[in-house]
Design a protein around this nucleic acid. Sequence first.
DNA 1: CTGAAAGCGCTAACAT
DNA 2: ATGTTAGCGCTTTCAG
Lengths: 340, 340
Amino acid sequence: MRGRNPFDGKPQLTLRDVAEVAGVSEMTVSRVLRNRDDVSSATRKRVFDAARQIGYVPNKIAGALASNRVNLVGVIIPSLANMVFPDVLAGIDEVLHETPLQPVVGTSQYEGEHEEAVIYEMLSWRPSGLIIAGLEHTEAARAMMRAAGVPVVEVMDVDGDAVAASVGISHRAAGYQMAREIAARGYRNICYLGAATPGDHRARKRLEGFRKGLAEAGLSLKDQMLYQGGSGFGTGRDMTEKMLARHPDTDFFYYNTDLNAAGGLLYCLEKGIDVPGQVGLAGFNSFDILAGLPMQIATMDSRRQDTGRKAAELIASGELTDAQVELEPVFLPGETVRKV
Amino acid sequence: MRGRNPFDGKPQLTLRDVAEVAGVSEMTVSRVLRNRDDVSSATRKRVFDAARQIGYVPNKIAGALASNRVNLVGVIIPSLANMVFPDVLAGIDEVLHETPLQPVVGTSQYEGEHEEAVIYEMLSWRPSGLIIAGLEHTEAARAMMRAAGVPVVEVMDVDGDAVAASVGISHRAAGYQMAREIAARGYRNICYLGAATPGDHRARKRLEGFRKGLAEAGLSLKDQMLYQGGSGFGTGRDMTEKMLARHPDTDFFYYNTDLNAAGGLLYCLEKGIDVPGQVGLAGFNSFDILAGLPMQIATMDSRRQDTGRKAAELIASGELTDAQVELEPVFLPGETVRKV
DNA sequence: CTGAAAGCGCTAACAT
DNA sequence: ATGTTAGCGCTTTCAG
């Protein structure tokens, strides 16, 4: 016997098996199973019954090879551990769900070489499209995406040159706008608390935009602190405590994510610090689950689900597009910044 | 020309193209690209150079059809919107990352018919394995999984009959144990606050186990409340407020998830309620991001990453296993229950 | 160590 | 409305 799948004891059922039971040609079975309407309803029924009876499951591998159509969409994100990426995935899934397309997920672990390998792997399945987080890739990765011959959408960032299409917010603009909002509210001693992930270009760009916004308001960042490891209330709390010890006159903390901001908020409230009077706080992302904190944190909606949805729509359209879709990050003042 | 992919302008590069450039046979190219060691290193280098030069990406569709080997693993979960499922995915991804296998994700939206369709879709790719959340499936779905001929692992639940292998905690046991812990700490007026998702069998089983545990301690559930929509601090806060209004003598709230419990905790603290003296609180899941709340919530670690890892290991082993791996849900008393 | 032939299961294209 | 033929790009098998 030829090399079957090692797990596969019994030979797989083929169209031929269904055809024999139904008493029609393979081709007719193929037509019925692809829901084509050029088959008589009597034949259609016979075929469906036969297929169900023997438990036939079509082989998409063979179908894909013959038709050169693959209903898979590659999705490459840095990690699944950070909530923002599953959020984008959920948006993608929501749209693909209405189509014959299925997402295949790969993670790059914020690492270019790794990402390149995952892209290669994905493209070797000849997917119907590729959705990939970020605009920063190795030169080889960009070359592969350019040559892929299928729609490629880079998501969650529009600050830079996309290989083809892109969907997302400008993190520079998000940081910039936040700086302006903070400055306009009279805060002056502003610190940034973020992550030390080298491959996190989006956080880097937000901080760049933030500094620029401060500069234009005649301000500058007083200090910053970067942590290793995951975000969370504990992380935000610790960083806030340390920074306040270092600079007791800090009057604003800008966090890389709401999760850390929430920790900072809880710390401040515990210490009896007047928020937003004495100290203001702002995060980033806007997580639904945090609605219900003692105070609603000022943040900026990063439009993750919308990003996923829009990217999936571009792929589903089948066009080889290079649309640049910039979504607006929405400033949500919450209750942790002073009123203007 | 035969029906190419509509997105594909240029014909795809084949082994033949590489072979011509390298001046060897297709077969030799195939060997080199599969990293087989029966090729001279001189030839190997020529082939690699040729492949890189023309930008060749192998076609796994064709390879899979010829070899009957597919390096995809189907993963079917109810939703991506609930953090617990990405956590399992992360565990799966962590292990598959070290193998040639790639996860393909599908969601069932907690809906049996939908799940059945997704299973059919997945199996038609002849994946190397299938990981699916839960033990409750339509009869047709179970039949497909039984006949799949590849390792199938049902995860996140072991209370019931698995089609083949299963990995996860017993939610009944988790609920039961939590009830015993609560009873042992002297709480008597106990309410459950959870979700109204009909397809959430795990929450249902936890509650069953919880009731049983209470009963064995001579107690019974005072009341329960189920909400529609996503969990979060706001949801937990609202439910807690309503339930306290209904039963001011409630001395314990058991939540379906830590996210809701956190909302309840914040509400209680705000109202000056003595936690854990007057009111105790416990959730479920154990989310890292919540470390840093004013009080650490009593919870039970649902071992999500471990579950994903173990399931992926079973798939990666390639064995057609029916191992039943029961992980222990770990009780974490935190600070929101009285000391024993 | 390298090559030639056959065919994986399905679908496009062309019959009828 | 249904059937026939050829072949997708690769790997298995067998030959050298």
